[in-house]
Design a binder for these strands. Structure first.
Length: 570
RNA sequence: GAUCUGAUAGCUCAGUUGGUAGAGCAUCUCCCUUUUAAGGAGAGGGUCCUGGGUUCGAGCCCCAGUCAGAUCACCA
């Protein structure tokens, strides 16, 4: 990158970098820096005169002659530092203060500080700097939001595109963003604790799969060169985890990155995180209790309370949660009883109640449409919706009391599904028939139905799987609820975005610019009006062309008393 | 996929019937030894997202495109 493409401030910082080296100061030293305190330690355990060694970015510099204040940002927060010229430079040579600190140290640079604690007249805990060390020079100015005494943020770095594309900068200057991700990690930790305390074990299963099963979704397809076969990126980890239950593990769980080649919006990212857990000898009733205890535990661990705010809603993850069958729910919100109704009857009801349907939809799908359209949005507080129709749950055990239903529940919060669980189907013959049923739906045109049968999974079931209950939780959505974010992008470090275009700046002249340039390169210097005349270009084209040449540094326009002169820059 | 909104200095944003761009912070120069987003004085800094068009003249109007956000549709 040539310096002409850099902003003024970037050029200045590179000059400062060179000057530091001239002074014998390495801007990117190799040695470790012996940090022994964080900003938070200092504030929480203040002791007058205590010696500390800290490091971080300098985020504020207020120079007042021979004394200056600054602010160091480390991983735990900010702490004020005080630089005094005669303390840093006790001898005659004041270069370290006057030049290195005042001129060559830029906001965003990493420095190390040895000093001692004191309180200013304003009562602010401050580190009096005895010595400072350049640890890493920052060549690009960070956005610089400021917070005033009332907590109002000025010049906030808010542009979502810039924030998501440059998350590193977002994290440096927006502490509330960092907090979201700390909470995200707390959620993972809390779940792991909960599972590990029960001796369920964390496992890993393949992401590259010959058949992407366990959910109805469009997978990403890739190709393995050595095997010369297509492979799919996982859309769910269900079928692999159940194989492990077959293998004799009693409880297994996995935090899995899943990939779905579908639309993107504020609740869908192409890759997302799910947690799935399978426990042998349990059923979905047990799993409901387990789920509500888990969520109560995690909400408490993340926020210190079971209550959470999401937009206009106040929700409480305190167990237990109400349990409503799908039939009851539809009856409650529509007055329509789906019990024993035929596919035709259901389709007719949908059509007369403004729900879009088509011929590919089977009975289960129609019921799901009714629920999605009329009921789902009403469940703000955590609520279990139970007993789903058999057709839409091909991996779920038939209901013990009603063969048209399955032992399945979803947990709804703020009108959105965040968990899904079954008494897992372990009858291999039934499972094979359900897969075949899905295949028929797929042939009928239902693009959500699975198009492949995972015969290896059926073989595993034939060896025998104990009665098992499984649960899947959408981690990103749960983080959204626990941190009050309406957009999934806010809870992912690096949400998927269209790639930025780098280095595609044109250096070639376009036709208009060439015409002007050809003339001026022969004449070297001429009156602007005359040059314009000779090019024969329209006003617009002339204007664009001459401006472009000027910006490229090829020509220079000078104003004299009575004319404009164009010169060729050699 | 549809509709709407937006893109201007490092950051946040103004920009009047269309007349060659402004502010605050940041940067640079000078003064200042305890300041609390913001001490004082001065200066520099622009591909107005891209490409066309209308016009004597476009940041502004028109067309096409890029990227983003919101709403809707789709979506285990």
């Amino acid at each position: 990158m040539s310096t002409s493409e850099l902003s003024e401030q970037e050029v200045q910082r590179r000059e400062a970098l060179n000057r530091l080296r001239d002074l014998g100061i390495e801007p990117y030293p190799a040695a470790l820096y012996p940090v022994d305190h964080y900003s938070s330690d200092i504030k929480e355990n203040y002791e007058e005169g205590k010696k500390v060694v800290i490091a971080g970015r300098i985020m504020r510099k207020k120079i007042q002659g021979k004394a200056s204040f600054g602010e160091i940002l480390d991983s735990k927060g900010r702490i004020q530092v005080y630089f005094n010229r005669d303390e840093i430079c006790p001898d005659e040579d004041k270069t370290l203060y006057n030049e290195v600190f005042k001129k060559l140290l830029d906001l965003g640079d990493f420095i190390g500080i040895e000093g001692e604690l004191f309180k200013t007249q304003m009562g602010e805990i401050t580190v009096r700097v005895h010595a400072f060390t350049m640890l890493s020079k920052s060549l690009k100015p960070l956005p610089l939001p400021k917070t005033d005494a009332e907590g109002n943020v000025h010049d906030a770095f808010t542009n979502p595109e810039l924030r998501y594309r440059q998350r590193y900068a977002d994290l440096v200057v927006n502490p509330h963003v960092k907090e979201i991700f700390i909470k995200r990690t707390k959620l993972f930790n809390a779940m792991r604790e909960f599972f590990n305390a029960r001796e369920y074990i964390e496992v890993e299963t393949p992401i590259l799969q010959p058949i992407a099963g366990g959910a109805a979704a469009r997978p990403f397809k890739t190709h393995h060169n050595a095997l010369d076969i297509p492979l799919y990126m996982r859309i769910a980890n269900e079928l692999y985890l159940k194989r492990l239950i077959v293998g004799g593990f009693e409880g297994v769980y996995e935090f899995s990155k899943n990939f779905r080649n579908e639309g993107m919006d504020r609740t869908h990212n192409p890759e997302f995180t799910a947690m799935e857990i399978y426990v042998a000898y349990k059923d979905y009733n047990w799993m409901m209790e387990f789920t509500e205890q888990l969520l109560e535990h995690t909400a408490q661990a993340v926020n210190g309370t079971t209550k959470a705010t999401f937009g206009e809603h106040n929700i409480d993850f305190k167990a237990p949660y109400p349990r409503v069958t799908m039939r009851e729910s539809i009856l409650e919100f529509t007055g329509f009883d789906i019990e024993g109704k035929s596919e035709e009857h259901l389709r007719g009801w949908c059509e007369s109640n403004g729900i879009e349907v088509d011929d590919t939809m089977g009975r289960g799908k129609l019921i799901d449409e009714i629920f999605g359209e009329k009921c789902e949005g009403n469940y703000i507080q955590p609520t279990f919706i139970i007993d789903y129709p058999k057709e839409m749950s091909p991996l779920c055990k038939e209901h013990r009391e009603d063969s048209s239903l399955t032992e399945r529940f979803e947990l709804m919060v703020c009108g959105k599904e965040i968990a899904n669980a079954y008494s897992e189907l372990n009858d291999p013959i039934d499972q094979r028939e359900r897969f075949e049923e899905q295949l028929k739906l797929a042939e009928r045109g239902d693009d959500e139905a699975s198009q492949f049968i995972d015969y290896d999974f059926l073989r595993a079931l034939e060896y025998g799987m104990p009665p098992t209950s499984g649960l899947g939780i959408g981690i990103d959505r749960l983080v959204m609820f626990l941190t009050n974010n309406q957009s999934i992008q806010e809870v992912l470090f690096f949400p998927q975005m269209k790639p930025e275009k780098f280095g595609e700046k044109k250096v070639e002249l376009n036709d208009n610019e060439k015409v002007i340039f050809d003339i001026i390169s022969k004449e070297k210097s001429m009156a602007l009006d005359e040059l314009k005349e000779r090019t024969g270009l329209s006003n617009k084209k002339w204007d664009k062309g001459i401006k472009a040449l000027g910006k490229l540094g090829l020509t220079k326009v000078t104003k004299t008393d009575d004319a404009l002169i164009v010169d060729l820059v050699e």
